[in-house]
């Protein structure tokens, strides 16, 4: 083994998604939450033994009296968040996406969503952001949650989205679920004069040939692909929809019908996420456009190194470009 080229390794709990040399913000959720907590004394943080891995340690260390360590007990985490919200507090509860959605679904659904309480779940490792394998890859969390009434679902692109989302999530009345990017998180969207508005999709850049409707970190890759393709004279528009529910159908419809090649791009299974949200928007309005989904396959993903897997499943920037060239 040692004589051959070393294979890429999985990394695990400690990997950042930022690329070398990229502009980043450290722990954007943690700092934004701390700031919000300083302004509103109703805000509290809770974690199920993952404060350090969801950036809630920033709040824990600065304001220990506003933080609850629940231990590794995700159902109890959401139970406690429910009770705190019933008493008028605004909890931000953190774990990994897989554990909030798979393990604690019933608690989230009935105690939090049905009661329409202001509980905010901030959950790391969405989609393919770890090479650890299916136990940690939340490839279907949005599919699981889109059917849950009352719940707002946010898939941020970068540190800017996260920082600006936090106060809006706290201020919105009902329950929210944010797919968290943690650690050193890329700063991307500030270059485009963008600001996050809960419930709104935003046209980040225009282009005459292709429209990518994207969400989450795939917006960054869509923008990279757009910049590359521009050099070949291909104009790519990118419509970023960080709020997946309620879905900003109007902005999507307004962007269609211009004779462009249309794709969706999401860090999620092609089942039950952004592609489906766009498809139902079109069908419901009788709009007959072909939309090509870029996303994770309807399969349990392999364990391995992230760059390998991103290529394997067609969600890397290079693969997005390849796909668009095939289709043009």
């Amino acid at each position: 083994m040692s004589t051959t080229t070393p294979k890429l390794t999985s990394g695990a709990m400690s990997v950042d998604i930022a690329k070398e040399g990229q502009r980043t913000v450290a722990a954007p959720l943690g700092h934004a939450l701390l700031e919000a907590a300083r302004e509103d004394e109703r805000i509290v943080g809770l974690s199920a033994d993952l404060a350090k891995y969801t950036d809630l340690h920033i709040l824990r260390d600065a304001m220990p009296e506003r933080f609850y360590q629940i231990g590794m007990a995700e159902q109890a985490l959401l139970g406690a968040a429910t009770g705190l919200a019933m008493e008028g507090f605004i909890p931000f509860a953190s774990t990994y996406s897989v554990f909030a959605t798979r393990r604690a679904y019933d608690f989230l659904c009935l105690d939090i969503a049905e009661a329409d309480l202001n509980v905010n779940m901030v959950c790391a490792l969405p989609g393919l952001t770890t090479g650890y394998g299916p136990s940690h890859q939340a490839t279907e969390d949005v599919a699981i949650l889109r059917g849950m009434p009352n719940l707002t679902i946010v898939d941020p692109c970068d540190a800017i989205d996260i920082q600006q989302a936090v106060p809006q999530l706290a201020a919105s009345d009902g329950p929210t679920y944010m797919r968290l990017l943690r650690g050193k998180v890329p700063a991307v969207l500030d270059e485009y004069g963008y600001s996050f508005e809960l419930g709104k999709a935003t046209m980040i850049r225009e282009g005459g040939d292709v429209l990518i409707i994207s969400t989450g970190l795939m917006t960054e890759r869509a923008l990279e692909a757009a910049a590359q393709l521009e050099k070949d004279g291909v104009g790519v528009a990118v419509l970023h929809s960080p709020t997946l529910k309620p879905f900003d159908e109007e902005s999507v419809v307004a962007a269609l019908g211009k004779g462009r090649l249309v794709l969706t791009a999401e860090n999620h299974s092609v089942v039950g996420g952004l592609f489906d949200a766009v498809a139902r928007t079109l069908v419901g309005r009788g709009i007959g456009e072909r939309v090509t989904p870029i996303g994770l396959p309807d399969a349990f993903l392999d364990a391995g190194a992230l760059p390998t897997l991103e290529d394997r499943y067609g969600v890397s920037t290079a693969k997005i470009i390849e796909r668009i060239r095939e289709l043009l």
Binding site: M1, P6, K7, L8, G133, A303, G304
Partner: peptide, 18 residues
């Protein structure tokens, strides 16, 4: 020898046992 494949791509030894 197989130990050196731990948690590398396409190894039988993924980082989390399956």
């Amino acid at each position: 020898e197989e130990l050196e494949t731990y948690a590398t791509d396409d190894s039988r030894f993924p980082m989390s046992s399956m």
